[in-house]
């Protein structure tokens, strides 16, 4: 197969990458801003897909479906928040419990169908693999709006309080910030965004699958980390630039995946590739740092001087 197929498919690859980028922006709120390893994401991504698919099938518009998906994701985030702040369950475990529970809940939402097809022929969708150029425009507009909103929100008083909670909870309490409330708010917003991305992804691919969220958290982290590694070329980057690079990370991740698929590697190995890519991007900055300041190097150069 020629390189043309890869290039012709690029708008679609970009669109899918940006959808993952939106999800990564959600993960960014918990993982980076709140310093909370939230694993509910795998569940809430599929929740967004299921809610959107069922709403669209019932004859409602995709706008309505996206709003409902956003609210459903927020509710999922709230469950993790309650488990953590009210019942004192550690962050990772709260997320895992929500994720597990959501698997059943998502099946219920999808009327016990593991896969709910929503064909672009039958329904009016926001994005679709069939119309790559149009879909790309749509997701670009959406992601820019989301970045603008996030940039504004984290600059407000509440947003600052949320950031402070993630950096230093002890200080935040001393400054009169309700730390549990801020954590909950972060989890709610994060999962709402993730579900929103799930709703987009389901429409783009023409179906909502109960397993579509599997590995979503790793993809989100991959996008954040890839974005961070490449954004390091900028010395002084502000918050908006950081967010843009998170989305770029999502796009790059999906381009890797497209190349892997184009090389005719078995689709079943995708998760393995994802894991390897994330491991590489995590390891590279560390190893680079090690190479610059290692004991071996110190012994060598110290001897010369």
């Amino acid at each position: 197969m020629g390189i043309e197929t890869l290039i012709i498919g690029m708008p679609g690859t970009f669109a899918q990458g940006i959808i993952y980028g939106i999800m990564a922006l959600g993960v960014f709120i918990t993982f980076k801003v709140l310093n909370f390893a939230d694993l509910s994401v795998d569940g809430s991504f599929a929740t967004g897909g299921a809610v959107a698919a069922i709403t669209i099938i019932s004859g409602k518009s995709w706008i309505y479906a996206m709003v409902l998906a956003f609210i459903a994701g927020a509710a999922a985030g709230l469950i993790t928040a309650v488990l953590h702040t009210v019942f004192g369950i550690p962050d990772i475990l709260s997320g895992i419990l929500t994720q597990l529970a959501l698997y059943s809940i998502n099946l219920r939402i999808a009327l016990n169908q593991p896969n709910t097809p929503i064909s672009v022929d039958k329904y009016n969708l926001a994005v679709s693999l069939r119309y790559k150029g149009y879909s790309l425009t749509m997701v670009v507009i959406m992601v820019l709006l989301i970045i603008a909103l996030m940039y504004w929100f984290f600059g407000t008083e509440v947003g600052s309080a949320l950031r402070a909670t993630g950096t230093n909870p002890a200080m935040s309490k001393a400054q009169g910030i309700n730390v549990n409330l801020m954590k909950s708010l972060g989890l709610v917003l994060s999962n709402a965004l993730v579900a929103f991305a799930g709703a987009l992804s389901a429409q783009f691919n023409g179906n909502a699958d109960v397993n579509m969220g599997r590995g979503a958290i790793v993809i989100g982290l991959a996008a954040i980390i890839i974005g961070e590694v490449i954004s390091n070329i900028f010395k002084n980057r502000n918050f908006a630039v950081t967010l843009i690079f998170v989305v770029c990370g999502g796009i790059l991740y999906y381009i890797f995946m497209a190349i892997v698929l184009w090389l005719k590697m078995p689709a079943n190995d995708m998760k393995l590739f994802t894991a390897i890519i994330v491991a590489l991007f995590l390891a590279v900055p560390y190893l680079k740092n090690q190479a610059n300041s290692s004991f071996r190097k110190a012994a060598k150069e110290g001897g010369k001087k």
Binding site: E157, V158, S160, A164, G166, T167, M171, Q175, G176, I177
Partner: peptide, 21 residues
């Protein structure tokens, strides 16, 4: 808060006990 700017830290303190909107 180490990750935040000096002015942001001071602004957080200036809103101690007030409603954050």
């Amino acid at each position: 808060a180490a990750n935040m700017q000096i002015d942001e830290n001071m602004a957080l303190a200036a809103r101690r006990g007030k409603c954050r909107g």
